[in-house]
């Protein structure tokens, strides 16, 4: 019973507050065009089997693997930090592109892009509306992984603040992957191509921040490596992992949050550029 109460107080209520803030922004701050596109897109996720399949796959993979292979139950502090959150972004490398692959590919395949872009709205209305719908689907996935939090609370007395931070950090990474997928899906009418290319880019985005790579780059001081050093360093600095690690530890630094927000806005802007080039 205590675990349930904790779950409600420390997770359910903040989640509802976040949802309420989102709804308020949606209704009062964003133009009606964004809302219309958002509503249609979100509904489309749930009128086709895609959202349900992804929910099951994500929850299935993330909880089973964490329980059975990563030793959530064996870890002494019953903290989710190490085993669970360290692996979540790896699943999201696959899941976020799977959620986002249809965003613009489907529009191009059906030809409805021509319909939407000849309506009296700015392209960013459509880009943002679609992106937010997919972001809500990802949010739903994370919310539905509450049983694992409940279990941990039932079995022990974890630091729920850190667990919350882990979810926030995971969500930011998921939003970055989704933004990458938005750009890629604008380039092709094939959802499969959009998925594969996005997974590859998200994987690189995630891996390029690996500590090994940063350490290796810092050790470079001679040879032809120096020629491509700036590019490697740039790729390394785009890596999402260090920012994720900081946030997941519960350290809410503006620098890390700005990294994610800037990255997402850049990708959404890139989506609009790709769409414009596609038409030219």
């Amino acid at each position: 019973m205590d675990a349930l109460l904790t779950l409600i107080l420390e997770f359910a209520i903040p989640t509802v507050i976040v949802a309420a803030i989102f709804a308020t922004i949606m209704i009062f701050l964003l133009p009606r065009e964004v809302r219309t596109i958002f509503k249609r897109e979100l509904k489309a996720y749930f009128t086709s089997p895609i959202a349900y399949v992804l929910f099951v796959v994500f929850l299935g993979i993330s909880s089973t693997l964490s329980f059975f292979f990563m030793g959530v139950l064996e870890s002494e502090e019953a903290s989710l930090l190490q085993p669970y959150f360290q692996y979540l972004p790896w699943y999201l490398v696959l899941i976020a592109p799977a959620v986002g692959m249809r965003l613009w590919s489907e529009e191009q395949r059906l030809g409805t892009m021509e319909l939407v872009l000849t309506m009296p709205l700015a392209p960013w209305h459509a880009i943002l509306g679609k992106y937010l719908a997919a972001a809500v689907v990802l949010f739903g996935m994370l919310v539905l992984s509450f049983p694992i939090v409940w279990t941990i609370n039932y079995l022990g007395d974890p630091d729920n603040g850190v667990i919350m931070a882990g979810f926030v950090a995971t969500y930011f990474v998921a939003l970055c992957f989704l933004a990458v997928t938005s750009v890629v899906s604008a380039m092709t009418k094939s959802q499969l191509v959009a998925l594969l290319v996005s997974v590859a880019i998200c994987m690189m985005l995630w891996l390029s921040g690996l500590p090994h790579i940063s350490n290796f780059l810092d050790s470079i001081n001679e040879g032809w490596w120096l020629l491509i050093y700036p590019f490697l360093k740039l790729a390394n600095s785009l890596g999402a992992m260090p920012h994720f690690n900081e946030l997941a530890k519960g350290v809410l630094s503006l620098r890390d949050i700005m990294f994610f927000v800037t990255f997402i806005f850049f990708c959404l802007f890139a989506t609009s550029v790709v769409i414009r080039l596609k038409r030219a």
């Binding site: 249609r40 489309a44 059906l110 409805t112």
Partner: peptide, 8 residues
């Protein structure tokens, strides 16, 4: 080609 959203 009269494009439409087939899921609606």
């Amino acid at each position: 080609s009269a494009p439409l959203y087939s899921d609606m």
